[in-house]
Design a protein around this nucleic acid. Structure first.
Lengths: 342, 342
DNA sequence: GAGATTTTGAGGTACGTAAATCAGAAATAG
DNA sequence: CTATTTCTGATTTACGTACCTCAAAATCTC
């Protein structure tokens, strides 16, 4: 039988009340006695039954998810995953509040974070904007004891408790390798579209892509990076223009959102000779369709559902001071081809 | 506040005892009364607090994992994931028994399944061998109320409650596409090595590979399939022979295990001109190393840890008659290149 | 309509932990 | 050596569900 708090009390030769004081970090225990109890806990291998503890506390974990507003499919998917998780809140003893903030807006994010200071939730998951004022706001929040995990977009590691997202440099390298291999030995030009070079993720992806493509296929020439601001219309214009400027374009890499526009521009040239190898990020209804019809060659994806569920698991664990199954919480860079679509 | 059993009693105008009889399918309730209670449950949206229920029952879920013996790294990894999960059994209220059976041996598997009939566990996860006698044994086991999920290798859907593994036809197609794209427009021969054509997974992968490679790169010629019986030494011999018979071999696809031998054979030719494009299955220390050094071009992988954890989650849910988050339980076909290694 | 049978109610204990109260013991200060 | 403060023990209630017993009520049988 698994040891209980009573067994600790017996093993340590103290009362249940004292064990409780130690376990729940309540004051009024001498260091000596505390050590005795902690020793007993280690000796008999006590593991707190979290289910029973939560029952006794009638605890719910108040969690806040802060997600950028905006039309793009990935963020919409992320939001709906958060909502789905909120729907399971009863069973999981969590209470999720989803807050929308304007995208790429550090000031708005700071304001949102500050509003949490009044009644700090137990945990916060935030799609971070990497700016000094945001750093400061998160620091203040964490000082209240709130656990903070970054979602999709990271901050320097010291500022948050965990990151639920992918390694974007590696994602860029992966895109670079695929581009290089798919264009095996060919010469030509490759267009790169970013959302905004002010965003960390996009910078990381570009860095990785450049590095790897240069390694593998030095004969390919990367055109100057264009910025779509994650807007489908802008992406459409950029791609259409590039395609008419460079009829023999070898490849296109869109490391931001706005794939809807990109696909539209490609579609217009569907039957032209020499369609460029196209690699994009995030599996959405549009990219899925384009992958299936062959307009897009590969989609690199981060699974928003996994990210949300992982963030929740990690938040709960960290709030309870419990360990995390690291391998389970690593978000992978999925490569989707037409054949391994989920 | 979330509704409790007391709320049901009140809403239905019956006593707690009756609610309990209905909830736990105990006898002695008139159909009429039962309906009243069930109606109240639906009306107030009662969701049983499983944590409290399990606490009251001091329940543990007795689970059995049946995994093939054998040296290959993938199965060893799978076993160690099961053991890791068993190590968390305290916290998750599960009791896992891990049973080894000889690989690809239907009779041994049947014997093992039959031995479970005496004290049927609540759930069984089995790496299935697809044979009629196995079907029958699993049917008998399920008749006792045991939930059965297949792991890695599937059976016809009607025979099991769930499959925790990947779509192997899709995996084969994915390999075929990668091979075709990496060999863009080249002509030549592609060698395929299977473990055994008697195993469903391997047949599926081959089917998918052939189909897709033929679509994409009809100029490539697939050599007759060789069988390694998942033995590294056999794989080594097969690859070495093939390489000397076909010095200009364009590609190698190993859809079974035994990659250690394959890598060794490739290594011997490392500095020869025209190393073949090599695609294999399952990320192990050997394939990871070979991917890193560039001997292997791509590894298709199924994450054994995910499969085991998913199997456990599904077993627990099915045992309790609870719903499953389908998206969370879909095991993906991971494509690993040198750049997106976890 | 009496007796037998089935169905329902009321109440309790248990699971493992949290959290509180209050009395008593031990340590520290003066 | 008191007076005070700090620690510790004993006990109780609660969380939401399961499961048990015993009695009472309703229904069925002849």
């Amino acid at each position: 039988m698994r040891p209980t708090v009573h067994d600790i009390a017996e093993a340590a030769g103290v009362s249940l009340a004292t064990v409780d004081r130690v376990l729940n970090r309540r004051p009024g225990v001498r260091t000596q006695t505390r050590a005795k109890v902690e020793d007993a806990i280690a000796r008999i291998g006590f593991i707190r039954d979290m289910a029973a503890a939560n029952l006794a506390k009638s605890r719910i974990y108040p969690l806040v998810f802060i997600v950028p507003q905006g039309e793009n499919s990935f963020m919409a998917g992320l939001r709906s995953e958060v909502e789905a998780a909120a729907g399971r809140s009863m069973q999981e003893r969590i209470a999720i509040r989803l807050i929308d903030v304007p995208a790429f807006d550090a000031a708005a994010l700071v304001k949102c974070l500050e509003s949490l200071l009044e009644i700090p939730p137990a945990g916060v998951a935030v799609v971070a904007v990497d700016a000094p004022e945001v750093h400061a706001a998160i620091e203040r929040l964490r000082e209240t004891g709130t656990i903070v995990v970054t979602l999709v977009s990271d901050l320097p590691a010291a500022l948050r408790d965990h990151f639920a997202g992918v390694d974007n440099v590696a994602a860029g390298r992966t895109a670079g390798r695929l581009m290089g291999r798919f264009l095996a030995g060919r010469q030509g030009k490759v267009a790169v579209i970013a959302g905004s070079m002010l965003v960390g993720d996009h910078r990381d992806r570009l860095e990785g892509f450049r590095e790897r493509l240069h390694d593998i296929a030095p004969s390919l020439q990367i055109l100057p990076v264009m910025e779509s601001h994650d807007d489908p219309n802008a992406a459409h214009a950029l791609v259409a223009d590039t395609l008419s400027d460079h009829p023999n374009l070898a490849g296109i890499y869109n490391l931001g959102a706005g794939n809807r526009g990109l696909v539209k521009a490609l579609e217009a040239r569907r039957h032209a000779a020499g369609v460029p190898v196209t690699i994009v990020h995030e599996l959405t209804p549009f990219t899925r369709e384009a992958l299936q019809t062959g307009l897009i060659d590969a989609v690199l994806n981060q699974d928003a559902g996994h990210e949300v569920r992982s963030a929740i698991r990690v938040l709960k664990a960290r709030i309870d001071g419990q360990p995390v199954v690291a391998a389970q919480e690593r978000i992978r860079i999925d490569i989707f081809l037409k054949d391994n679509l989920p």
